[in-house]
Nucleic acid binder design. Structure first.
Length: 812
RNA sequence: GCCGAAGUGGCGGAAUUGGCAGACGCGACGGUCUCAAACACCGUUGGGCGUUAAGCCCGUGCCGGUUCGAGUCCGGCCUUCGGCACCA
């Protein structure tokens, strides 16, 4: 019976052994330095797919690598288990969301076990378990106490057919995905978190090792704008308060020729004249059917309607018309703008389409400002048409105008953020109940902490009543007011699932604590997270929410430090073999279980890591699997077959150097998540050893050290085969508890280096030189070469560029 | 549309700071071992010119620029992907 690599036998055997030994249990009192490696927890959709493997297997490799480097690594897993799909299953198939979710979790746990990932399963958390969401509710109360939670009106997608609120993904081209009814916007009173209070601090990423594109996206998302709010009196009887607008260009105020309100602006109804009412109401209704993305498109025609009302420019007394248009959003700034068509492209387009006046208030060296403008221009020289400000240079214009506005009480300098407060209310069943009670006499009253969790009731019916399903459960909704004891009703909205994932990394450090979300000591020991890996699709929302949560917790002295995740890495998306997102409808889904069955978890892990850089993702095609399998087989042979004939040991030196280069490169590659090149280097060393075994000349000690180094370097990537080979070489269990090999530079010193010789930038020859050769020596040797002479043709070099150990370029 | 990213052989990709384009692997072709085969082994493999060879020319999405030298830097496009606040 030939002794060959058989994943089918060795993988389950080692998983059972690791499990029995508790090799992945993490202790808080371990003396090694702590290292917290976190991978974004999955939603329990029902089946582990290739995408999960692509996210988790490399994370596991990174965690195992740190463990071998001497850290006590916390690498937990759990399930982000509340959310829409469970409720859809309930509506469509009548299954209970809780049962559906728990069934999925059980299945995915089994599948995850096959991966050979070094999770400490005793720390598993499931966000829909009352033991977890009790603390999610606790966080809500803390944020409420702190004044960071409040109620306000906000729009939701409303399907009149289903009588229900829809998620954005349930709206397709403005229609409900279930009933095809046109979706409307409906205003509801909902809960918000004041994330904007932290906007300024959230712009600061100093000290964070995060990918630059993510911080850029977050900065743009927060969208800080400096400018001013200006107050324009409204020329309508009964409207005494002025119309407040935010502008980044207060210096163009003399060029404001009309005002634009968002159609949802609260003043619209009060200022609209009788003649314009029908048009305005029609436009407001039409706007409720347009998505925000469409509204912000700069290509789209700028529609709008005149309200019939006028405002007074506080600077020059000009009486200017007030319009409504959907390119102004009620959620940004004050929901109203002063339009300066001469100096703003959107305002210009609007003015052109609706025949409104254009008054330039800056001159320009290349534009005739007395002629009708062809387009808006944003950079000008000095102010014109601006009364006392005429001649003020552009650089001084904004402070001058703001100072004047403040003196005249017509406005103030202001900073606005694009970031909006976080809407956390969901009109759904499958989420954590918001722990609040509405009492007629006391108003909104928090549920006392001692009464948490507010349990989600079971046996709920999902009927299209226009209410959240929780509203219908009288025995749950009706409750005594904690404050006065009178009859009161529970809040029937549930929490956004982003809230569950905003603090889960904190719960992992102390997951079974019944008294607190976690103890202060464990938090100090483990937090913040050292390495967070997950999809770039979370670059903005989840990662901003969790930063906000952390900062709020810090201000409440629950955690220490300013940031929750020190280092962040975003892996790319794995696609189907056709380059499209894997989906059942496309028929391009690759099922991991089948591949694991056929090739083993190690091979599948390695193939996923080998296909390309982790942050790039890309198409996954199992057709590349034979290359990985061949490598593992070759590794098996090298490690299990007898050593080569030592001969005179002449090849030892090169094997030592090759091994050391591999140590250096693989260490750097795993550190930088370049698993693809790490595996390429391991393949090269494996091949080099296999060839050396054939040709001989390697002494026994060198051979053993090289083979065992190769196994150690492979261990984080292919944990099962490494363990098996380590045991077969009679090394002490476990390979995963061994120290990572140290690179020794003195063993790789080269006697000569190859220098490329170019003539006019084209490679014409190569030279072998000592590494410390100087330019003169290199030049002399190069010019002596016949091939170089042929290209130089006796001409005198005009210039010679020498890069030591690399290249010599002769320019003639 | 806005914000962010990516385009290199038949395919996945490599080239970490501007310095030999195509490492490593798949596939293909040729061969070895074998009764036969394999997840075994060896070799060739960007395109063109060249009988072989030496060698030469072209070549990193497109157009232009900077440089002794550009896959890499700059400007302008094209295409694909992620996010856009109720999918998670």
């Amino acid at each position: 019976m030939p002794d060959r690599y058989d994943h089918y036998v060795i993988e389950p055997r080692w998983r059972r052994r690791w499990d029995a030994d508790g090799i992945d249990r993490v202790r808080d009192d371990d003396e090694r330095p702590p290292y917290y490696a976190l991978t974004m927890f999955p939603y329990p959709s029902g089946e582990l797919h290739t995408g999960h493997w692509y996210i988790i297997a490399p994370s596991d490799t990174a965690a195992r690598f740190r463990r071998m480097q001497g850290y006590n690594v916390l690498f937990p897993i759990g399930f982000d288990a509340f959310g829409l799909p469970a409720e859809n299953a309930a509506i469509e198939r009548g299954v209970d969301p809780g049962e559906w979710t728990h069934g999925n979790i059980e299945r995915m746990r089994q599948q995850l076990r096959l991966m050979g990932a070094s999770f400490d399963w005793e720390r598993e958390i499931v966000t829909c378990d009352p033991d977890y969401y009790r603390w999610t509710q606790w966080w809500f109360l803390k944020l409420y106490e702190r004044g960071l939670a409040y109620r306000a009106g906000a729009a939701a997608n409303w399907c009149p057919g289903c009588q229900t609120v829809l998620a954005n993904e349930q709206v397709l081209d403005g229609l409900c995905e279930r009933s095809d009814d046109p979706v409307e916007r409906r205003f509801l009173t909902q809960w918000f978190f004041r994330i904007t209070e932290y906007a300024e601090e959230l712009l600061d990423f100093s000290g964070l090792d995060w990918p630059e594109p993510v911080t850029t996206m977050q900065r743009n998302w927060i969208g800080r704008s400096e400018g001013a709010t200006l107050r324009f009196p409204v020329d309508v009887e009964g409207v005494d308060e002025p119309l407040s607008v935010f502008t980044t260009r207060p210096d163009t105020v003399y060029g404001a020729t009309f005002m634009v309100l968002a159609p949802e602006h609260q003043l619209v109804e009060r200022i609209t004249t009788d003649e314009q009412r029908e048009a305005v109401e029609g436009y407001v209704a039409a706007t409720s059917r347009v998505t925000e993305i469409e509204r912000l498109s700069t290509e789209r025609e700028k529609t709008g309607v005149f309200t019939g009302a006028y405002a007074i420019n506080p600077f020059n007394g000009a009486r200017i018309p007030i319009w409504i248009a959907d390119y102004v959003l009620v959620t940004y700034g004050t929901g109203a703008i002063m339009a300066v068509p001469a100096h703003d492209e959107r305002d210009f387009a609007f003015a052109r389409d609706h025949g409104l006046e254009v008054i330039p208030v800056f001159d320009h060296p290349e534009i005739d400002v007395d002629a009708p403008l062809e387009a808006a221009f944003t950079e000008g020289g000095a102010m014109i048409n601006s009364g006392p400000f005429d001649g003020t240079p552009a650089g001084e214009a904004i402070p001058a105008v703001v100072a004047h506005a403040e003196a005249e009480r017509a406005g103030t300098g202001a900073v606005t953020y694009r970031l909006r407060d976080w809407l956390i209310s969901r009109q759904r069943y499958w989420g954590s109940p918001i722990p609040m009670i509405h009492c007629e006499s006391c108003g909104v009253v928090p549920v006392p902490e001692s009464e948490l969790p507010v349990l989600l009731p079971e046996n709920v019916h999902f009927e299209p009543t226009g209410q959240s399903p929780l509203t219908l459960i009288e025995e749950w909704v009706n409750v005594d007011c904690p404050s006065c004891g009178g009859a009161a009703r529970r809040e029937t909205d549930t929490l956004d699932t982003f809230m569950c994932s905003s603090w889960y990394q904190m719960r992992y450090v102390d997951p079974h604590n019944p008294e607190r979300p976690f103890s202060a000591e464990t938090a100090r020991h483990w937090l913040p997270v050292d390495l967070y890996t997950g999809g770039a699709e979370h670059a903005v929302m989840h990662l901003l929410y969790t930063r906000f949560f952390w900062k709020a917790a810090r201000d409440m002295e629950i955690v220490e430090g300013d940031e929750p995740m020190k280092r962040l890495f975003n892996q790319g998306d794995i696609l189907g073999p056709d380059g499209n997102r894997m989906s059942k409808s496309r028929g391009n889904v690759v099922a991991p279980d089948d591949l694991v069955e056929q090739y083993g978890a190690d091979a599948f892990r390695c193939q996923l890591m080998f296909i390309g850089p982790w942050d790039q993702g890309g198409p996954y095609n199992p057709s590349g699997m034979p290359g990985i399998v061949r490598w593992l087989n070759r590794l098996w042979s090298v490690a299990t077959e007898p050593p080569p004939d030592p001969g005179d040991g002449a090849a030892s030196r090169e094997i030592v150097a090759a091994t050391q280069r591999t140590v250096r490169d693989v260490t750097g590659d795993i550190e930088g998540f370049r698993f693809n090149t790490a595996i390429a280097r391991l393949m090269e060393l494996t091949t080099a050893l296999a060839r050396a075994r054939e040709s001989g000349g390697v002494d026994g000690a060198t051979w053993d050290r090289s083979v065992e180094t190769l196994i150690l370097l492979t261990a984080p990537l292919a944990p099962h085969i490494a363990e098996e080979l380590w045991e077969r070489r009679d090394r002490p269990y476990s390979v995963h508890q061994q120290a990572w090999p140290e690179f020794d530079e003195s063993l790789v010193v080269e006697e000569t280096v190859q220098i490329v010789v170019q003539v006019n930038g084209k490679v014409r020859d190569r030279l072998s030189l000592p590494p410390d050769a100087g330019e003169d020596e290199a030049r002399e040797r190069a010019l002596a070469s016949e091939r170089v002479q042929g290209w130089v043709e006796g001409k005198e070099p005009r210039r010679v560029i020498y890069v030591p150990s690399k290249l010599l370029n002769i320019v003639v």
